[in-house]
Design a protein around this nucleic acid. Structure first.
Lengths: 112, 112
DNA sequence: ACAAAAATCTAAATATATCAAGCAAAATTA
DNA sequence: TAATTTTGCTTGATATATTTAGATTTTTGT
């Protein structure tokens, strides 16, 4: 399993962001960001992980897993069920299932 | 929005658990659990929230929202953009947009 | 190559999460 | 009812997350 630091640094570079820019965007000091990326921090707050996952368009679960909060990994379906829905009214069961089916379809037809 | 403390306490009682049972199950001290339930803690770690959501069968997201880690929600579109995710690989831009369109379609045809 | 600027990292200070111990109310049991 | 146990809580101690300031490294322009 990739460390939290590696995961965060890769994500930041993928988005071509500097530590200072991340600081401006999230309010997290660049010094602390550096420590996070160098695995000096064992237990960051949910707040911090959420802000970063949000900025980098990462799934929170992958950050939590990298940070050691989550140890085991589920399959796609369970993962989607658990992760979808920050919105005011979350997705209904039917909507979730429909979206999962639709995504499978999307990916299937993409493979040609 | 219900506070984190209220959310945790309700969940624990729903499962008929005592603070010390939760301590045994999670390794989180009953003293700290009490502080959490009384909203004395502003920024718990991702670790703690994950363990509790796991034990109580709660959505991690609902705990994060209650803890204030997840701010307020915008409209469905932005919210979905920020939240949908899969375990192995995250959604591509195209897939996100396709899913959002599809959800709009789902909800539109439901209204009839 | 050199100076200036930008970017990252380190160290010390501070804030806050988390724990250990013990207290008081409530519940249980004899 | 009194003794014992259980339960939730408070307080003080400690560990660790997070910040501020500054040092070091890397990049950029000339």
């Amino acid at each position: 399993m990739k460390t939290l630091g590696k995961t965060l640094k890769e994500a930041r570079e993928q988005n071509s962001l500097k530590l200072r820019q991340v600081e401006d965007a999230t309010g997290i000091s660049n010094a602390y960001l550096s420590q996070l990326e160098n695995d000096k921090i064992k237990n960051p707050s949910a707040n911090i992980l959420y802000k970063l996952s949000s900025l980098y368009n990462l799934e929170l679960n992958s950050l939590m897993a990298a940070s050691g909060a989550i140890k085991k990994k589920e399959d796609d379906t369970v993962s989607l069920l658990n992760s979808v829905a920050f919105s005011a009214e979350s997705l209904s069961k039917e909507e979730e299932e429909a979206l999962i089916e639709y995504l499978k379809f999307l990916r299937f037809s993409k493979k040609k």
